[in-house]
Amino acid sequence: MRKNLQEPFWQALIVLAISYVLLKWGIPYIPPLIGVSSAPVPQSVLVQFMLTVAVGVLVWVSDNEERWRRFKQPIREALVLPERKRVRVALLVLLPLLVGFVTYDTVRPRVDAPAGIRAVHPAPPTQIDFRGEPVRIEGAENPLREEGRIEEARERGFDIYYQSCMPCHGDYLDGQGHFAHGYSPAPLTLRGGSTIAQLTESYVFWRIAKGGPGLPREGNPWNSAMPAWEDFLTEEDIWAVTLFLYEQAGISPRTWEEH
């Protein structure tokens, strides 16, 4: 056993096994121990990570002449030596079975919907039609912010948020409202650096005004339950609630460079 641990072949297998354990169970369960939320890694990403590790392991075993020879030795022995006949037969039966099982598992009919993709931030239109009025999106600034009516807008946005948005996006803007668990995709968290902090205010305005139905083709497949708020709110209301979101989450909207 001790001797085997020195062999590149077994070392490689151990590295692969440890990586799998870390990625599969380490990522979802270790960060919560230090108070960071986490979740299981989707299968597609897990496969991608494991492939990368496997390529890395292959590079390691073969970048040195001696190691490469020793790595190949157990494989060769298993395939050639007369006294390893049982191992050989077992491998020749098990490996094809494994491949067959993986193939079956990928193609067998299932009830759950196939994995989907969507563009995170689909490109916004240059201008939108807001209940018959054209509103320019590209390069637009929040007019309320520009006019310095921040305090007033914040209060108005506060009211609107609690009337209309809170049930899904939650008290803490974390996407954990009362209804949140009924939806897939779940309502977006508005906190943190990866959602609205990446976007300009006019982009957020567009998303609120047009909601799920107004997503461009490239945002599909997408079954967002977000309503098109232009039917319920005025233009200024939406600007106000946009401003409120940023103020409340304590982040500033993305700005473009002056040019």
């Binding site: 597609s44 196939p114 994995a115 989907g116 993709i117 563009a119 083709r217 490239e218 599909n220 497949p221």
Partner: peptide, 9 residues
């Protein structure tokens, strides 16, 4: 080809 396909219409 593995990633789901999106065409820009």
């Amino acid at each position: 080809n593995i990633i789901p396909q999106v065409q820009s219409d």
